[in-house]
């Protein structure tokens, strides 16, 4: 089922997850460390020129105009209060500001064991990594001792069902699916009934990718959500919106409009193993405050980590934390 595997984080020497993430984030040009250390020789105070350089770096990391301004303003304010001299001090100050922005949204996903099953609805725009993330989550929950079932509620995209079934086989977890073109809400509902009947603890529902501006597709999603809710017990217990770290400022619109359609309770940031920095999460944290649950750092089952603010920022800044 699974062909040869690409080079994966799985196969690297056993490093902690953070170290792996850091190593991966620092592939290619690390967006801050290299230049900042060159830029701020020991003894040079943090002046406007350097702030502008830092601003450039933040923009390059997709932090966006607003969040970047917010961050730089905070740094400037601090530099006025206490003299910040040299690269280490500047980075430490920046590290603190960035971490503080993300701290409120680093809330891990807790499976409520009293819910049978605990239902996770996975949503997002096209191609962000929803199905792959479900495969990774299945592996994670299995490893945590939970019984897991997958629901193939993407009945639209060609071979989306086959893709999810492959992940099910790989993780040895059952997959509930109907024919291509079936009503996604019906698939989700049947899966929930089946999971309940079998005493499954975690049900992961895959949905088709949809652009957030397509009203009819957002209505379809609302229906899936509603139907799960009708079956009682507060399902879905988690609505995970999967965001691609490669995406720029459109991620803000994605969060806003998805959250309007179905209450998004957690975010996943995928593809952080590339050169994209995922800086848009600072703007997201600033604006919407939805917990960031996980990060994706590869295409294999093990390439998922819990989001953690200090670790994420440390990874972004190198070892300056």
């Amino acid at each position: 089922m699974f062909g040869p595997r690409k080079k994966s984080a799985d196969e690297q020497p056993k490093l902690g997850f953070v170290a792996r993430l850091r190593a991966q984030l620092n592939q290619g040009d690390s967006f801050l460390t290299r230049d900042v250390r060159e830029l701020i020789p020991a003894g040079r105070p943090l002046d406007e020129e350097l702030l502008e350089e830092l601003e450039t770096r933040l923009l390059l990391a997709d932090c966006g105009v607003d969040a970047t301004r917010h961050i730089i303003d905070a740094l400037r304010k601090q530099a006025r209060k206490e003299r910040i001299v040299g690269a280490d001090a500047a980075l430490a100050a920046l590290h603190k500001i960035l971490t503080e922005m993300l701290e409120p949204v680093s809330v891990p996903l807790e499976v409520d064991a009293t819910q049978h099953p605990f239902v996770v609805l996975v949503v997002g725009v096209n191609g962000t990594g929803k199905t792959t993330t479900i495969g990774k989550l299945a592996a994670r929950f299995r490893a945590g001792g939970h019984s897991v079932m997958l629901a193939a509620a993407d009945t639209f995209r060609a071979a989306a069902i086959e893709q999810l079934v492959a992940w099910g086989e790989r993780n040895q977890v059952p997959v509930t699916a109907q024919a291509h073109g079936a009503d996604p809400a019906a698939v989700a509902f049947d899966a929930l009934e089946a999971a309940r009947a079998r005493g499954i603890e975690v049900l992961l529902v895959d949905t088709a990718g949809r652009l957030q501006t397509k009203q009819n597709l957002m209505e379809e999603l609302k229906k899936v959500h509603r139907v799960l809710g009708k079956s009682g017990a507060g399902a879905p217990h988690e609505v995970l919106l999967v965001l691609d770290a490669t995406s720029g400022q459109n991620a803000l619109s994605q969060v806003e409009l998805f959250n309007e359609a179905v209450p998004v309770t957690g975010l996943v940031l995928t593809k952080l193993d590339g050169t994209a920095k995922g800086g848009v999460i600072f703007a997201l944290a600033d604006r919407c405050g939805i917990p960031i649950r996980f990060v994706g750092v590869g295409e294999q089952a093990g390439d998922l980590g819990e989001f953690n603010a200090p670790e994420f920022v440390a990874a972004l800044l190198g070892d300056a934390g």
Partner: peptide, 10 residues
């Protein structure tokens, strides 16, 4: 030959 069901998709 890597992503599950990628060939089937096409």
């Amino acid at each position: 030959v890597y992503r599950p069901a990628a060939i089937q998709q096409l």
